[in-house]
């Protein structure tokens, strides 16, 4: 039987609230991250995957964004109910984050060493020497070849790949149980992408961590993730083991995404794009959010919102799952 999830997001909704506006961008999202696994959250831009990730550590811009429903359980504690001081104790120490675009995500005015040792000292009462030692080890663990030199360098002196490794080192210094990586390789070139992903996968195994990987890249999912959840218009539409979902997608959207991925070994020369566009969160239809773009659409799809249900060995939010 599967163990208890380390991080259990239940029916999470995150929405925009303000003068005369109020709608949810993330709707009723449930995700479970188990010990020592990589969970990929996949979807196109604006599907709410990054906002879901940010809200775990309460890093979403508030106001105007608020958690409007659900809970985020980490080791039995609901993170959405934590005081700012208690949340700060979780950030970096229990759950760490790696962001996309590492060049702008590092403070340009301070050295890598200052950044890393500040993060160490934010959670551990250690001397400057020990903090430096921990930081150098984290840099080496993140796959940086010359940690001592990088320690004294400023972000502008680093390449994109090295910056992202510094971000990973920053996530590692306090030995968290979970790393949430939000599009960690999007800003990097392909060879560096592969190295960074390999490193994340190895770290998961070496340290027994769990990784939540936010991405729009199905190739990345296939190569590093154990399980995956596909998000569309703020909802999870399909989730399950990566092998199961990619081999036999049941939701027409997942199916469409796979058809839109170029393959070298495939005989079909043309990609099949998904027609239409993603509905805006403030103009969602009453029924299925994907109905307008779906080729299998029926009257029931337009009137009745489908629940997330078990189908074969995955969970699917569809009235007419693809067989």
């Amino acid at each position: 039987m599967t163990p208890d999830p380390l991080l259990d997001i239940r029916n999470l909704s995150v929405g925009l609230r303000g003068d005369g506006i109020g709608y949810d961008i993330v709707r009723d999202v449930s995700l479970s991250l188990y010990p020592n696994e990589v969970l990929a959250v996949v979807g196109e831009s604006g599907c709410g995957k990054s906002l879901t990730a940010l809200s775990i550590l309460a890093l979403h811009a508030s106001p105007p964004l608020y958690i409007t429903g659900g809970s985020i359980l980490f080791e039995g504690t609901d993170l959405t109910k934590l005081s700012p001081a208690k949340m700060r104790a979780v950030r970096g120490a229990e759950i760490a984050m790696v962001f996309q675009d590492p060049m702008s995500a590092l403070d340009p005015m301070f050295t890598v060493g200052t950044l890393l040792t500040s993060a160490v000292k934010a959670h551990q009462k250690v001397s400057a020497d020990v903090a430096k030692k921990i930081s150098l080890e984290a840099l080496a663990d993140a796959g940086i070849e010359d940690p001592r030199r990088r320690f004294d360098e400023y972000p502008f002196q680093l390449s994109g790949g090295v910056s992202q490794r510094v971000m990973i080192a920053l996530a590692l210094v306090n030995d968290p149980k979970i790393i949430i990586a939000d599009e960690p390789t999007t800003a990097l070139d392909v060879t560096v992408q592969a190295q960074i992903l390999d490193r994340l996968r190895e770290l998961k195994n070496e340290r027994g961590m769990s990784v939540m990987l936010i991405t729009h890249n199905l190739g990345v999912v296939a190569s590093v993730a154990d399980r995956m959840a596909v998000m569309y218009a703020g909802e999870v539409v399909e989730s399950g083991a990566v092998g199961e979902v990619l081999a036999a997608p049941h939701h027409p959207y997942t199916n469409g995404l796979l058809s839109a991925v170029p393959r070298l070994n495939s005989e079909a020369s043309e990609l099949v794009p998904i027609g239409g566009r993603v509905p805006q969160p403030n103009e969602l239809p009453a029924g299925c959010a994907f109905a307008d773009r779906c080729s299998f659409v029926t009257d029931r799809c337009r009137s009745e919102h489908p629940p997330l249900e078990h189908h074969a060995r995955t969970e699917v939010r569809c009235h007419h799952p693809v067989a």
């Binding site: 700012p84 700060r88 950030r91 984050m97 962001f99 590092l106 340009p108 993060a119 934010a122 971000m167």
Partner: peptide, 26 residues
Amino acid sequence: SQDFVRTLRAAGLSERRIYFKHVLRN
């Protein structure tokens, strides 16, 4: 509102430290 502020928050630095050290220096 720079990205680096979010990084520092995610690392668990206190708001005071982020404000008086990092944001001020910039």
